[in-house]
C-alpha cells in the first residue's frame, strides 16, 4: 500500500516494486491526461500481473474510465507510457522519442485487449453470432466455421447459446452485456478491460453479469475492472485501487483496502457506497 500523494514519489515507488517482481502484464507509468482545461489523470501508476484481477474504484469523475481507456488506446495519454506485455501502447520509440502510432497501427494493438463497455455497444444491425464472429474473421483471418464454432462455445459459457440468431435489441441488458463479454473473448485477448459493466443494469440483471466475470476470473484471465460494486470487488479482485481526482489514492490487496482503508477519502467513499444491506447480503 502506498500513501504518497506526490506523483513523482508514486512513480519511484512503482519502479522499485517492478524491479522486485517479474515484469507485469500491464504497466501504466506516470500517465497524465488533460481534457480541455481539466487535468483528468495526474501522473497515475498502475500495474497488473498476469492472471491478476484489479478493481478500480472511486467516485464518479475520478478518472477511472479514462485510465482504463488509455490502456487500450481508445484515448491517448498526453504524457506517460502504458506497456502491455512489454509493448508500449499507442506509441513507438523512434530515435529516442516516443512517437504516436497511426490509427491503423493502434488497431493491431487493440486486437489483443478485450474491452467491455457500460452501454454494451453491441452492433445493433448484426445478429448476436455476427457480432461475435466478425472481428475474429476479419482481423484474425479465422474461417467462418472455426469462428462460429468458438462463438457457440462462448455463448454456452455465458448461458446464451439459444440467442445466436437474435438481434441485440431483442435481448435484455444483462443478456446484451454477456454477449458483449463473449464478443471480446472471441478475439482471445491477453487482457480484459471492463468499464463499469453493470452500471446500466438493474440489480436483478447485475448478478448474472457479475457471475460471468467471476467465472472468467477463475480461468486466470487478467482483468482490470472499473466498478461501483464494492461487494463484487471484494469477492473477485486481487488488488483494489481507489482513485480520486485523477490520482490513485490507495492501492493494495482488495481485502485490506476495502476493509481497512487508511486514506480518509477512501473511508468516505466506501461509507457512501456500502450501506446497502441487500447488496452486502449477497
Amino acid at each position: 500500500m502506498r500513501h504518497e500523494q506526490h506523483p513523482l514519489n508514486e512513480y519511484r515507488a512503482s519502479t522499485m516494486t517492478a524491479a522486485k517482481t517479474d515484469e507485469p502484464l500491464v504497466r501504466c507509468e506516470n500517465i497524465w491526461k488533460t481534457r480541455g482545461r481539466n487535468l483528468v489523470l495526474k501522473g497515475v501508476n498502475l500495474q497488473a500481473r498476469k492472471g491478476e484481477v484489479v478493481c478500480l474504484l472511486g467516485p464518479s469523475g475520478a478518472g477511472k474510465s479514462t485510465l482504463l481507456r488509455c490502456i487500450n488506446a481508445i484515448e491517448l495519454a498526453d504524457r506517460g507510457l502504458v506497456h502491455v506485455d512489454g509493448v508500449p501502447i499507442g506509441c513507438a520509440l523512434r530515435n529516442g522519442s516516443h512517437v504516436r502510432l497511426t490509427e491503423s497501427q493502434l488497431s493491431r494493438q487493440r486486437a489483443d485487449i478485450g474491452m467491455v463497455f457500460q452501454n454494451f455497444n453491441l452492433f445493433p444491425h448484426m445478429s448476436v453470432l455476427s457480432n461475435i464472429i466478425d472481428a475474429p474473421m476479419r482481423i484474425r483471418r479465422e474461417t467462418r466455421a472455426a469462428a462460429t464454432h468458438r462463438a457457440h462455445e462462448l455463448l454456452r459459457k455465458v448461458g446464451l447459446l439459444d440467442k445466436a440468431g437474435a438481434y441485440p435489441r431483442h435481448l435484455s441488458g444483462g443478456q446484451q452485456q454477456r454477449i458483449a463479454i463473449a464478443r471480446a473473448l472471441a478475439m482471445q485477448p491477453k487482457l480484459m478491460l471492463f468499464d463499469e459493466p453493470t452500471s446500466a443494469l438493474d440489480p436483478h440483471l447485475t448478478d448474472e453479469v457479475l457471475d460471468v466475470i467471476k467465472g472468467l476470473a477463475a480461468t486466470g484471465m487478467t482483468m482490470i475492472i472499473v466498478t461501483h460494486e464494492i461487494q463484487f470487488a471484494r469477492d473477485v479482485a486481487d488488488t483494489a485501487a481507489v482513485m480520486s481526482d485523477g490520482a490513485i489514492i490507495e492501492m493494495g490487496p482488495a481485502r485490506d483496502v476495502l476493509s481497512r482503508p487508511t486514506d480518509p477519502r477512501t473511508k468516505t467513499f466506501l461509507a457512501r457506497s456500502l450501506p446497502d444491506p441487500q447488496r452486502q447480503a449477497v
Partner: peptide
Amino acid sequence: EASKALGHK
C-alpha cells in the same frame, strides 16, 4: 469505440 476496441481498422 466498440469497433476500435475489437481491433478493427
